[in-house]
Every structure is written in structure tokens, then in C-alpha cells.
Computed example of a mutant assay.
Amino acid sequence: MPGHQAHYTVRTYDVDANKRMTAPALLRLMNEAAMQHVIQLKLSVWDLEAHQISWVLLRLDLYIQRLPLLGEEIEIVTYPSGFERMFTYRDYRVVDRTGYPVAQATSTWILMHTATRRPARLPDWVVERAEPLFAAPDFLPRPASKLKEWRSTENQLTTTVGWHDLDFNWHLNNSHYLRLLLDALPQERLATGFPQRISLHYKAEANLGDLLVAESGSGSANSFQHRLLRGEEVLAMAETAWRDTLAAVLASPER
């Protein structure tokens, strides 16, 4: 399959208290693999900045089979998977050193005009450079276009966007959105499982100094709703479905 292959070792700064890689850390590595690929395609930030445009993540559907442990080696394969009007799609597949699936994701991107901060149309030269890669037959389904209506807020986390939260677009890094949304969950949920499915929609930029409130609430069985607010404005919404870790199952008093 055409695309970019990258190999990584799970580092100490990628894991949580259970020595297990976090979902935001996995997203950071997926972003890095995609970045290395667009550098090869000459569609990176350095190629686009002269045209005052930059890539921005709009939607993400991430499916996690398991989160690797500290010291594990993983491979990420990523490739663009199509264009549709102003949207660009990119897929990711993550496996461990034996080739066993770890995760897969499909994502939707747009180009942002860096001066106006508004969506920009795809230039013909961008399409021409990426279109030859769209021959693979097994692209993943497109990310969900709509999430469920917000039900109720059960947990909140308040934070202020700092300098080290920004990316090169001068706004909150997309992996930090995910970190804040997940951190608003109860500690017992975070400590005893992992998000098996994440559907995340980015709606607006968060900027340096913004006061943000991350909220979470229960959805259906073992699932949650999430949103990130700046005042009354919704900056992101997400839905997650959770799976208990083996350690949590073994420790259960019902066993």
C-alpha cells in the first residue's frame, strides 16, 4: 500500500501511571508519522506557508485494539485516502512488532488560511501531488459526520492554554484537545480501562491564554460524551467507548 511507514518505541513520556501508552500519546505519534509523510510529498508546513495555508484536523475516528506498554515497538502506516470538496482524508494503521493490530484511525483535514483563520479551498497543485496515492482499495470508512446531542454534564476540568500547549499554527495542539477531554473523566474510569473507540470533532481554535472547561457525561453502557468549552462556545465534541483492561478484570471482586 502506498504511504509512509514509521517505527517508534514507547517512551516514558508516552505512558500513564499503569505504564501503558495513552491515547493522546498515540495521536501525537500518528501526527508525527503524517508530518513526515507530507514532508516527503512536499505538502508540509514549510511548503504551504508561502501560500498562507496550513493543515488543520477536523474529525478523527480512532479505534484502539490495545494500548502498547512502555518499551514496546510499534509501526504506524499512514496515507491520504481521498479528497471531497474542501476535505482531505487520511488513514492510519498501527501494529506491534509481530504485526498484530494495535489501532486504526481515519481522519478529515481542511486547509486553513493562516491570516484569516478561515477554511481555504484545496489548490490544484495540492491535489495533483497527493492524488496518485489513491489507488489502494482498502481505505477505511470516512469519520462520522455527526455526533449525538449533548445530554448532561457530570464532570468538569478547568484549564488555561499555555505556551507549551500550542503547535506551529499558534493554536492548541489537536492531541491536547483529546488529553483535556479525557482528563475530565472520573479517575477510576481512566485507571481501569482505555478508550476502545474515540470519535472527535474539532469545531474551533483555542488560543494562548484561553480559559477552557472540559466536560464529560455518561452516554450509553460504558460510553461517554465529551466537550470542550470557551465560555459558551463549543470548541470540540467527542464520544468514547471504553474497555476494561485485563488488570482491572483480574482485580474485580466478582472474580
Rank of each mutant, 00 (worst) to 15 (best):
T114Y: 08
S107C: 08
W242K: 14
E215Q: 13
A136D: 12
L178D: 01
R117H: 12
L235E: 05
R142P: 02
H176V: 14
S145H: 07
N174F: 08
T106R: 01
I198R: 05
W163L: 11
L200N: 09
H201Y: 05
A214T: 15
T114R: 04
I110G: 15
D210V: 02
L133I: 03
A103K: 02
V127I: 08
S220L: 12
D165M: 07
A206G: 09
R197F: 02
L208A: 01
D138P: 00
A204C: 10
L172A: 10
E233H: 13
P123H: 02
N174T: 10
T159R: 14
H113E: 05
K146Y: 06
K146L: 13
P137W: 00
E232V: 09
D167V: 09
L211M: 03
D167W: 09
R118S: 14
L211G: 00
Y202P: 03
L166Y: 00
T114W: 11
L211W: 01
G231W: 06
Q196S: 15
G193H: 12
F194I: 11
N173H: 12
T245K: 11
E149L: 11
R243W: 07
M237K: 15
P101G: 05
T108H: 00
A238I: 09
F134S: 01
P141A: 03
T159E: 10
G162M: 08
R121S: 11
R142D: 04
K148G: 05
A136V: 06
P137Q: 00
R142T: 05
L181N: 03
L147M: 09
L172R: 12
L181E: 07
L190M: 15
A241M: 11
A241E: 14
A214W: 05
A135G: 13
D244G: 05
D138W: 00
L172M: 15
L212R: 03
D167M: 03
S145K: 13
R227H: 09
K148P: 00
